[in-house]
Simulated assay, not measured.
Amino acid sequence: MVETVTLYRAPTTPADADALAAWLRGRVDAEVRVRDRLLGTRSDDDLPEELAAARVTDPSERATGNTMLGIVRYEERVLDDPERAGGVVYDGRAVQRALNARLPGEQGLDHLHLPLLDRVIGTWGGHDGRWHKRVAVLGQPALVSVPGLYEAPAKPEAYYEAKSKHALMTGDAPPREVLEAELDGDFLVADDPRTTEALRGYVIAAVDLLESGTAFCDDERCRLHDAHRQPGVIRAQLRDPPFCETHAERYG
């Protein structure tokens, strides 16, 4: 039984941890708290090297990490100044282990830690031998990647069709902003005003895993569904009904 949920802010993103906590309080029988950025408050001298070791350096290579001095120094800088972070994918399980070790006395499953991250995280796909970006890596702590919300789910087919058409006509890849303007509303983009609402399902799914032992929901209409395409994210997180029948009884 989850007795306490602690969300951690990601101040460089539009995700509102306080609003998510307020929404969660009305749906779970647990105390819901909010703390400042976990990567900032639980950092130590070893964390930069552990993050460097968790870097995905090749999308088709299982091995991760580049712990050269310059990379470790970069990780030190972005821990202090998260505005500098970007362009890197991290092994979500490795980051999860690193952060779990920095929750002294609070690793028990009765206290779920739920950091909103300003980093992109991924998991290795054994079925196709590639790394895949993820919105969430559930467990303890449950990692929710804000940039992953925009980058992990595949965009609608129209996006890729417009991208190919533009490249054929000009010989260059179109600016991302051009494509986003052409297909406004069909998918989530960086700093999207719908970010906080769209993260609700991933947050409550993290609680549900510890409560029920089940990760995510198979019903594509449910907030707890882990959609792999942007139209699916829009349908699950921003359209009615908010929950399937089973999860509506639990959280509706």
Rank of each mutant, 00 (worst) to 15 (best):
L103M: 06
P104D: 09
G105E: 03
E106C: 06
G108C: 00
G108I: 00
L112F: 05
H113V: 02
L114N: 09
P115H: 00
P115K: 02
R119V: 13
I121H: 05
I121F: 01
T123Y: 04
G125E: 08
G126R: 03
D128W: 13
G129P: 03
R130I: 14
W131Q: 13
H132Y: 15
V135T: 14
A136E: 02
A136S: 15
L138F: 10
L138D: 12
G139S: 08
G139Y: 11
A142H: 02
L143D: 05
L149S: 08
E151A: 13
P153H: 10
A154R: 15
A154L: 14
K155E: 01
K155M: 00
A158D: 14
Y160P: 01
S164R: 15
A167L: 15
L168R: 14
L168S: 08
G171Y: 06
D172M: 08
D172H: 11
P174M: 12
P174D: 09
R176W: 08
E177Q: 13
A181L: 03
A181C: 06
E182Y: 04
D184K: 14
D184G: 07
G185W: 08
G185H: 07
D186S: 14
A190R: 11
A190H: 02
D192I: 11
D192N: 10
R194C: 01
T195H: 05
T196I: 11
L199C: 09
L199H: 02
Y202V: 13
A205N: 10
A205P: 06
A205E: 06
V207N: 01
